[in-house]
């Protein structure tokens, strides 16, 4: 009992100081999230102060039990909670494609089943076709994936990976 009492006291004492702080710095209010900034996203809202305070997660905690696998999925359909990987990393992917390298680009290449020795070709190809893949800021993940498949189909080295 003493243990819990002590903790409650500490919590209350801290909270006597925290409210002003919390109001001053609550990041972006209840609507803040890490949905995509550039492209529309369907990954939902992010953490609010409470979530952040306890390092919690709001939303469906699936314990990693989503469809798709940890690693390769031959046709790029890796999904998390029914949402495709690409839809959730569109911002990072577009940035990597613009630059021509990066973690998001690698992750997408991996889910498309592209062999390590062909990754640089994939990076170069998507980089060269940036405007085809991202014609405007309202493009959806499905449309981007269709364009990726299309440019791969037309590439001698990568056509074997196209669905």
């Amino acid at each position: 009992m003493g243990r819990f009492h002590g903790k409650k006291m500490a919590a209350i004492a801290t909270l006597a100081v925290l409210p002003s702080l919390a109001f001053a710095v609550a990041p972006g209010g209840p609507d803040c999230g890490w949905g995509n900034m550039l492209f529309k996203s369907n990954s939902g809202l992010g953490p609010h102060l409470g979530a952040s305070l306890t390092n919690g997660t709001s939303g469906n905690a699936t314990f990693g039990m989503s469809s798709g696998t940890n690693g390769c999925s031959p046709n790029g359909t890796l999904t998390y909670g029914g949402i495709s990987l690409l839809a959730q990393v569109m911002d990072e992917f577009s940035e990597d494609v613009a630059r021509g390298e990066g973690d998001a680009l690698d992750a997408i290449a991996l889910t498309l089943g592209i062999d390590v020795q062909d990754r640089a070709t994939f990076a170069q190809l998507t980089h060269d076709n940036f405007s085809t893949l991202f014609p405007n800021e309202n493009v959806t993940a499905q449309e981007v994936m269709a364009s990726i498949q299309q440019v791969m189909k037309n590439d001698a080295r990568l056509s074997k990976y196209a669905a």
């Binding site: 909270l15 209840p30 609010h48 102060l49 409470g50 305070l53 306890t54 997660t57």
Partner: peptide, 16 residues
């Protein structure tokens, strides 16, 4: 990640 599991729509400060 070990964290609190958050009921939807809970008040932020109460939560804190």
């Amino acid at each position: 990640n070990f964290g609190a599991n958050i009921p939807a729509g809970d008040n932020s400060l109460l939560y804190a």
